[in-house]
Each structure stands twice: as structure tokens, then as C-alpha cells.
Amino acid sequence: MSEESSESVESIETSEPSETSAVINLVQQEHPAAILSTHRHRSDETLVLKREFIQPICRLLRDHPDCQFEMFVDLTAVDYLLVETNLQQTERFEVVYHLRSLSKDHRIRLKCPVPENDCQIPSIHLLWHAVNWYERECYDMYGIHFEGHPNLNRILMYEQFQGHPLRKDYPMDKQQPLLELNDVEERYHYGRFE
């Protein structure tokens, strides 16, 4: 068992030889200050960025003829509170983007560390239609503010919900206060406007 366990804690960097792809080289050329690190694990390419640069880099990835990531696949966040690991994250949260190019047939993952005491990141909702709801979901679940989002409201939870359920410090068995029925009725008036 000792052999297996020592194998299982191998770090990401050593697990596969790093061969930088054309996309990563391009981003390195265009925005050398933006990249914190890159890695390739199980054939998934990852770029770790400074959050300030997320808008220009996403624009570059979408529009540059060598990249053409015209499909926005997924957006989520990871909370590393209390996680002791060698994943080498620097801040509590990490916002994770997945992009896919149909014409070039490749994928990429972008990650932006976001500190706990300044929980915000520029919104990229102007670049793809799909981003709008994903950013709302991420805000709902983790409380990360997407600056410039036109409608940053809760999407899966209800408006009066307190806290952000996917944060690691939100207890599993926490109960929420009951809603006053009045609020609900006032909010939803049906029928013709008068």
C-alpha cells in the first residue's frame, strides 16, 4: 500500500512532460504578464491567469485565427478552503473556464485565482451568449462577483437565501429561515398590468 500511496501524491507537473501548445505560446507572446503558470494533466491543457487579464485573453482566444474558441463550454469555481494539497493554488477560490473550438478541434481550461477578501473578477458576458447564466450560477453558489454583469442575481437558489451553499464553510445541514408568505405574494402579482 505504501507504494501506491506514494504514487498517488505525485505532483501534476511531473505526471506528464510539459509540451506547450500553440495556443499557450500565443497567449504568452501577447500577454506575457498575465500568465501565472501552465500545465498539462491527462491531456487537459490549463492556463492559470491573473484575473485582471481575463477579458483581453478571452477575446484573443475567441477571435484569433489560431485559436477560434467559439464555444463557451463551462464556468465554475473551486473553493480550496481547508484543502491541503499540492495543487499549488495560491488563493482560496479559483474560477475555472472551459472553452472549445469547433473549427480547430481543441479545448483549453483557464483558471483565475480569486482571493477571499476581494471576491470579484471581470465579467466576460459580452463575449459569448452562454456566459450570462453560468456567471450567475457561480455567483449564487460561491458568492464571487462578476464585475459588469448586467443581472447578477441568484439563479438556482431563491432570492432570500442566506449564504453561498458551495463554499466549504457552509455547513451541510444548515437550515434557512422560513419565508414570509407576504413577500412572495407581493412580488408575484399576476395578470394585466394596471
Binding site: 500511496s5 498517488s8 505525485e10 494533466h41 463551462d74 494539497t85 495543487l87
Partner: peptide, 11 residues
């Protein structure tokens, strides 16, 4: 199970 540390996206 103890998967090694890392992250994957599988579509």
C-alpha cells in the same frame, strides 16, 4: 478510492 491529485474535464 484515492485518485491522484489533479483535475480533469471529461465530456
Amino acid at each position: 478510492h484515492h485518485p491522484p491529485a489533479g483535475e480533469v474535464y471529461q465530456p
